[in-house]
Design a protein around this nucleic acid. Structure first.
Lengths: 106, 106
DNA sequence: TATATTTGCAACCAGCGAGTTGCATATTAA
DNA sequence: TTAATATGCAACTCGCTGGTTGCAAATATA
């Protein structure tokens, strides 16, 4: 049942939640209003995101504000890094090809 | 049943497959030898990766070489980009804090 | 105090996902 | 031609996932 960041962002609803919370902290109720599913369903997604550390909670009376934790999201970028070099080099190769083709046109 | 790139990289085995194929094209059989599961299980993962476009196949007789497609992986980086700005700014803030503390120590 | 609001937890359910085994097909090797 | 190899497809199982509803607890409001 142990989840990780990659499984957390696999769900479209959870990605939408993260996007919403990127700009401001939100309560489960406020979040749920943005989706067609029930509050409890959204609450479950929140629980998953909190468990993997992508969001943190902040208590305020009976309300709970969840806010985004960018540090955890960086884990994905870190995993992505070696691949990034690949697609960047490929794009560079494409640029080179285009540059060599252009002169022929004129 | 429609999968996307995020669901594709959610599985640890599939991430391992991508890492293996990052450097060189591989056949399902060669890939399967790196894992404890059956060839068919690996083949299913390959199918998922191919369906979302993260890998491409290249026929060679009865063998099928699958090679990595960096362009598709970039989709994840693109989604990540707005979040990146967040964690980078936070890290910059931390740097600033540390810079201001240091002088006090001496 | 009594009521409404916010939230979490538990139980349940349908469907998907990852695994297995078995079989069919196509290509290479003997 | 016959046997071995490489691969995909189908059927099946089992556990997880995302959804629901119902309920309890805690806090705010009347």
């Amino acid at each position: 049942m142990k989840k990780d960041v990659f499984q957390a962002i696999a769900d479209p609803t959870r990605r939408a939640i993260l996007t919403l919370m990127m700009t401001q902290a939100m309560t489960p109720n406020a979040l749920a209003q943005h989706f067609d599913t029930s509050r409890q369903a959204v609450s479950k997604h929140i629980k998953v995101l909190a468990e993997v550390g992508l969001i943190k909670q902040e208590l305020s009376g009976r309300e709970i504000y969840y806010h985004f934790n960018p540090k955890k999201m960086k884990q994905i970028a870190d995993w992505l890094e070696p691949f990034r070099q690949l697609w960047e080099s490929r794009l560079n190769q494409l640029e080179t090809v285009l540059k060599n083709i252009k002169p022929k046109k004129s």
